[in-house]
Design a protein around this nucleic acid. Structure first.
Lengths: 117, 117
DNA sequence: TTGACATATTCCCATATAGGAATATAATAT
DNA sequence: ATATTATATTCCTATATGGGAATATGTCAA
């Protein structure tokens, strides 16, 4: 069944490296499609398509000015991702890593003993 | 060309909701495949397959004990995701939202004026 | 209206999976 | 050795895209 239609999940939108690049390029500034094309060196349809996905998910918003469309990041939509990953943060801290390695050592010892039985 | 082979990118591994569930279920505890099957109510091959992907990306590690395989989260691999999303954090804070809305109002005014010209 | 510019959309193809079913592999107990 | 338990793997199919090329849409200027 392939991956579920992802275009409505920020996690999935972000899974595509190009879309992450796009968000990085936009950063806090508003840019037109052509500016993004120039900046990234992709084809125009490619930029438009990825922007389309990001827009559907709500990760960018669009503002029309003349024939241009100015895009900007809608950072609030990234909050769910931040919120999801943050609880794991404590487990990659340096102190945790040390503790973890220590426990790993102890554990190996236990396994050896168990085998020798 | 479809999405680039994602099995080596944590962002992509995490894009699948089931794999996020799996990581949540594991949390900080070590669980066997069957325990996860019982906990999540999925089929055993399904659990094994998703664990396989997570393992390839390094998001979980495996420890063999008898016929069981105990899996646990390798949180450090989530750091890149945290690091990527964090810089955007400031833009969804409450105070930023207020400022942003205010600027939005001003902007609308400008557009109207520009049009009337 | 006509032409130039900015952007979006459509068509087509190749490929990466997710899920289900069946089966293989590994380890333990009898 | 054999049965049983725990887990992984393979085969198959349906489907979701990503990218390229061509084209449509929309907007402004002359």
């Amino acid at each position: 069944m392939a991956r579920a239609p992802t275009t409505y999940d920020p996690f999935n939108a972000i899974a595509e490296p190009k879309r992450r690049q796009l968000l990085e390029a936009l950063g806090t500034q508003e840019l037109s499609v052509n500016e993004l094309v120039a900046l990234l060196g992709w084809t125009q349809p490619m930029v438009s398509k990825h922007l389309g996905v990001l827009k559907q998910v709500g990760l960018v918003s669009e503002r029309r000015v003349g024939r241009q469309r100015l895009y900007r990041v809608n950072a609030a939509q990234l909050k769910p991702i931040h919120d999801w990953v943050t609880p794991f943060e404590q487990y990659w801290s340096e102190s945790f890593e040390r503790l973890n390695q220590l426990l790993g050592q102890i554990h190996k010892g236990e396994r050896k003993n168990a085998r020798k039985k």
